[in-house]
Design a protein around this nucleic acid. Structure first.
Lengths: 156, 156
DNA sequence: TTTCATTATTTAACATGTTAATAATAATCC
DNA sequence: GGATTATTATTAACATGTTAAATAATGAAA
């Protein structure tokens, strides 16, 4: 009956996890990798990681932002963010200072060198995204974004 | 005009990257995180990372598999896989030996202790997935998987 | 105002992601 | 058959992911 299994096994199906190729976690991972594969080489030419670019970009979008807010927007865990901030500050792309009203908070701001990066990388990034969107279809991208958002907020 | 911007900026929109909240890379990341958030605590109770579980699972699905094939199926880069294999072998969950026909290749096989893990974790994993699928809708999961696969194979 | 709980960030420790380089074996070419 | 090239896996070096614990500052309660 032309079963589509990838390979034979000696175990009955009932004892096995469902097929790995049709599982959401791996499918999401693959899709994300495919998308980032288009951006990464360009970012690498500018000596930026994906996460560093997200941080700079959000500072350009939102102005001054504290670390907690940044962690939420960029979807980066606090310990990673600490390291990324240190690195970006050492490179002079962002500036960091304590909040005067709340000594626990760290406020982040983009530096002139960071704005220069935005000016250089931004157009390239948008061009890549536009190409991707055109290939996949703008409405399908919208539909996909909606579904992904639903999935992400299932429990909320 | 009720602009929906998250916060004010002094820069004109044209110079900014498009809004971070509606970008595929972050949306895929968020969705994946939300999904894995359901599995990770359970896997942690069995002292397994997500990646280790994928490797064991694929060996249970596919029997003997070489490292290259495993890297493709589990979507894990070779250097990570090397470390994961070492760890799983030290824990006795898998066995590893050189291919007699091709001395470069490493063949992987699940060990009895690994089968025990499959028997313990498999049902829990399937239960979590089933709940997720029920919440999100089986057809929508299928549609999402199709779209993700399309996205992942855009350039192919 | 001293104490206690809470919140924001950092550090620690380990696992994985990422790219480049290396070592070992196979395959190809002359 | 010997040099060259390609393939497979590992190692190296650095960045990020992940959880837990430590620090530091704030806010609330006693």
């Amino acid at each position: 009956m032309s079963r589509q299994k990838t390979s034979a096994t000696s175990e009955p199906d009932g004892l096995l996890p469902h097929n790995t190729r049709r599982s959401l976690p791996i499918a999401l991972l693959r899709a994300r990798e495919a998308v980032m594969g288009h951006f990464r080489p360009m970012l690498a030419r500018h000596e930026l990681t994906e996460q560093q670019w997200r941080v700079i970009r959000i500072l350009a979008e939102s102005g001054q932002v504290d670390a907690t807010e940044m962690a939420e927007k960029a979807f980066i865990l606090a310990p990673s963010l600490t390291r990324i901030i240190r690195s970006l500050e050492e490179r002079g792309l962002i500036s960091k200072h304590k909040d005067a009203d709340d000594g626990r908070r760290v406020l982040l701001e983009i530096a002139p060198a960071g704005m220069k990066v935005i000016a250089e990388v931004g157009p390239e990034s948008r061009a890549i995204y536009a190409t991707l969107e055109a290939k996949f279809g703008k409405e399908r991208v919208e539909k996909l974004l909606d579904m992904l958002d639903d999935l992400a907020t299932l429990g909320v």
